[in-house]
Design a protein around this nucleic acid. Structure first.
Lengths: 195, 195, 195, 195
DNA sequence: TATGAATGAGCATTCATTCAT
DNA sequence: GATGAATGAATGCTCATTCAT
């Protein structure tokens, strides 16, 4: 009942929340983290007040944006787990994740800043999914054995960086990732990674 | 004599300029490009006016910082040209350049933003030096033949990114570069780079 | 209805705009163009931000002030056109305009500086109204025939100047204008004006 | 002796003082009271320190400028006393004073600001000279009898104002003064001045 | 004594956030 | 709830003045 009474409102609110997030994505992609809340509101077609109703601070809005991207990368990992071949699975995750990141300048800006708070659940699942991918690829002998979970975001950020530079060809990140993946192969390792 | 009479003033001013640059380097490294001019002044132990005497705007100060790093990377390239072995030369340049970049969060912040105006001379020399390094390494068959000059800054930025993430171990960028370099070897190329 | 629903906001904003203009008028009258935006805000009883919402820069605020006075002077001219007697009409315009100018030190400050941008429409109407006044008074033989439109602001500024000098009696400008008007009579012309 | 020993220095210093004043005159004429001390120094070909050696504050420098003009106007009055004809004498003073003022935008700017402190001696002599001119012209029946000493600076400022407006013809102030002088004639007075 | 580099209070302007409508 | 006008702390920059050389 209460549910029934509230649903219309919630649908409205949810739609608004989405519009704000979408507007924020666009505006942050264009202007980086210097984008202004007023511009987000304008792009979303709502008043600033509405932005603040859904996200208490600018920081919270940025965090929400980060989470939404984080989740896409996580999903890329989950999907990749389906692949039989461990190396195929890992590289698939990296390519899909790269695609996501490269399409969103905001992400790099955001992750470039410290302290983006992802929920423990999200982090745990991320850790588990990607650890599994890494472990399998190590077990099959395809992946350098000393790669660790913490190296992954670092690689991903490199990709994001490739996206930011405006003079690069749109494939820049793909070149970057190609080299990186070749470097990840166990066979190609010139030696152990510094620890 | 006239020289001796003039030098003290200039020496003082030059010293102050250095102090400002050094202070700026520290402050920007700590707070990124949001660092405040007043803080730069405080760190340098001078008044804000002095900062502005040497650098007309915040933008100019940041640019000066970028140039000073750019020149270090260029120097790394020049030095590397001395090496007999082409592959040795290239990787040496990358390692030395990486060392420079990784020690300075500001650089990544700066390069992450578009429009850093380096002088044409600087850019030209940079291009020539690194092109030579690449060409030699390609000629000797060590480097993937389809690597181009434009890929270099992209790789470097990836390194910078590795430095920014605060939770990474101090060797993070070295792990990144190790993988990258292994991926650059002609022998390890799984295929051509997307163009 | 929709009107009624929207008006309150606009009415509020408009009221605030007026308060800002009024505050600015007072503060600029007191401190000249060196008056500070914060003081304008304080006098208007609003935050600085509100001042800036209505006038994007200090310059724009000053210009708005100038326009508002300019319009009063124009209105003085329009009203004067009603008078039958051409000389009566002209002197009336001058007296009324003088009254306006003398009450506002800011205007003199502003006009004393070059480059006050009045809209072409405003300037055109000003020109037409005062030219008519002059032509009529010349035609009736009351006014010196070689007076031209460009002389008018000059005379007016003289009045403004009389107002600025703080040691003058409040009637100073009236003494000034009295002499001036007597000098404008065709009968009193000792010779042609230098061109 | 001490005198003899100091004179060379004084000559130097006096020359510098003049250079500063001259530079200030030029710079204030160009940029009005917003002119900067550094610019004055540059124009005078000296360091700022030297400007400050001769004039303790910007205010003092501006005052000195005002005094120098004030003295020219005073001199114009003194010279005019030589004329036999009282009306000739008065108008001559006005024309010569006008010439001086009109050549110096700075003066208007300066006098436009309140509180320019002239020495009592200067003020007294000014008062005496011009009062004499006025009294003689009243006695001969040429000048409106209710003109008082305080009206003079006001008229002069009107002239200064005519000079400031950049779009006016160079003779603008002469037109203004012509009208004014015609208005000063006793015969042309339409009535008493408001008091 | 002259110089001009250094100083820092002061001011215009911005923008995240609040709150009356 | 939604709106956008209002708020004011924060920040880049200026310029009169000081002082080490």
């Amino acid at each position: 009942m209460t549910q029934a009474a509230q649903r219309p409102l919630r649908a409205d609110a949810r739609r608004n929340r989405e519009r704000v997030l979408e507007g924020a994505r666009e505006v942050f992609a264009e202007h980086g983290r210097d984008a202004q809340m007023d511009d987000v509101a304008k792009r979303a077609g709502v008043g600033v007040g509405t932005v603040y109703r859904h996200f208490p601070t600018k920081e919270a809005l940025v965090a929400a944006l980060a989470v939404s991207l984080f989740e896409k990368v996580l999903q890329a990992g989950r999907d990749a787990l389906e692949h039989e071949d461990p190396w195929e699975a890992l590289t698939n995750a990296l390519w899909t994740g790269g695609e996501t990141l490269s399409s969103d300048r905001a992400f790099t800006e955001i992750v470039g800043q410290a302290e983006v708070p992802f929920s423990p659940e999200l982090q745990t699942e991320m850790y588990e999914v990607y650890s599994t991918l890494l472990d399998r690829a190590k077990a099959s002998g395809d992946l350098r054995p000393d790669i660790v979970m913490d190296d992954i975001p670092m690689f991903m950020c490199g990709i994001g960086m490739a996206t930011v530079k405006p003079h690069c060809c749109p494939n820049a990140w793909r070149r970057h990732l190609t080299v990186l993946i070749d470097g990840l192969r166990a066979d190609n390792a010139s030696g152990p990674l510094p620890s």
